[in-house]
Amino acid sequence: MHQINKWEQAVRLKQNPLTSRNFPETEVFSEDVLQEFLNRSSFVYVKPIGGREGKGVIRISKNSNGIYSINGYTNTGSKMDKECFNMEEVLTFLYSNHIQKSLPNYIIQQGISSFTADGQALGVRVHIQYVKDQWVLGGMLGKLGNQEDGIVNRNRGARALPIRELLLLHLHMNQQEARVVEEKIELLCLEAGRVFHAEHDWLKECGIDIGIDPSGEVWIFEVNMRPSIKFFYHLEDKSVVNQIKKNRLNRK
């Protein structure tokens, strides 16, 4: 089955002038890289190169007292919460529970704060489609998570809401600011589609997870090459999911 793993995604997105500015710093996992990232960022994400549905994704943070917190999910989807008092404990925990030390099967990604004013993790899911020789927007929705780990995934309890509602009510933007953000998200995601399609012409649809930092800047967190549209059915307004289905018919 066709797929583009997270490391290849990172390499391709970093090579493109437009997407590179809005994609978090990402490297293949190693002990040195983990330490280096945590010296520069308050938290990072460690992700399996080929994972889906939020499985295997963990957040590692370090507070002002030097205590590390590990939150997230095992590769089977079980919740993970652990406090460690030094990096040696962190690595011991990861190697015993999560990461195969001998294989480069995980990436480390710079943590980007994407939260509402009251501390709820937020995100945007964007569905793009390749129709009649061009990438088009199928639809987008807002996501609110219920987990402190910042992982905003339908399979991890996130809820869907209209994108405009997310921007206006939860990020307190005005209508003009919201329109600008939506337009930027659309342009960024369509460019990501073109980046991958240039080398993978089998690719017809992408589900792209977007974060929005406190300054209102948007970030590509992840691109799913086998996207489900189930989350769009959670919206009361069915026009978005209907547009996605219409685009699929127009492709034939």
Results as ranks from 00 to 15, higher is better:
K47C: 10
G193A: 07
N250R: 14
S239H: 07
K204Q: 07
V28P: 05
I212Y: 04
E222V: 11
E186H: 09
V90R: 02
E199F: 09
V240N: 04
E199C: 09
A198H: 00
G56T: 05
I163F: 14
I229T: 13
F196I: 02
G157W: 11
I60A: 11
W135C: 03
E8M: 08
V33L: 04
G157I: 03
C189F: 04
N97W: 04
K238Q: 14
I229W: 08
I208F: 00
N155L: 12
K14M: 03
N247K: 07
N224S: 01
D149S: 15
E53P: 01
E186Q: 06
W219E: 05
V126T: 09
V152H: 01
N224F: 00
H2T: 13
H170K: 09
L103M: 08
N97S: 13
I220C: 04
R226M: 10
G66K: 06
Q3V: 15
N71E: 15
E177C: 03
S114D: 04
E89K: 10
N146S: 14
N71S: 15
N86W: 10
V223N: 01
R154D: 12
Q147Y: 13
I229N: 04
D118L: 02
G119H: 13
F232Y: 14
L187P: 09
R52M: 14
S102T: 09
R21Y: 10
H2K: 15
K132S: 12
I220H: 11
F43L: 05
L166W: 04
R21L: 13
M173H: 15
I4T: 07
N65Y: 13
Q35K: 12
W202Q: 05
L203Q: 00
M1Q: 06
G142P: 03
I99G: 01
W135Y: 11
L249Y: 09
D237R: 04
G51H: 05
D81P: 08
W202S: 02
S69K: 13
Q9M: 06
G72S: 11
G123W: 11
V131D: 01
G51E: 02
N153E: 08
S30N: 14
H98S: 10
M225E: 07
K252E: 06
G54N: 13
P48S: 10
R194A: 05
E183F: 03
H234C: 05
S42L: 06
Q129E: 02
K79I: 14
L137F: 03
G142A: 01
D201E: 08
Q147W: 06
V126L: 02
I185G: 00
C206I: 14
F196W: 00
R164Q: 11
P17A: 13
G216A: 05
L187K: 15
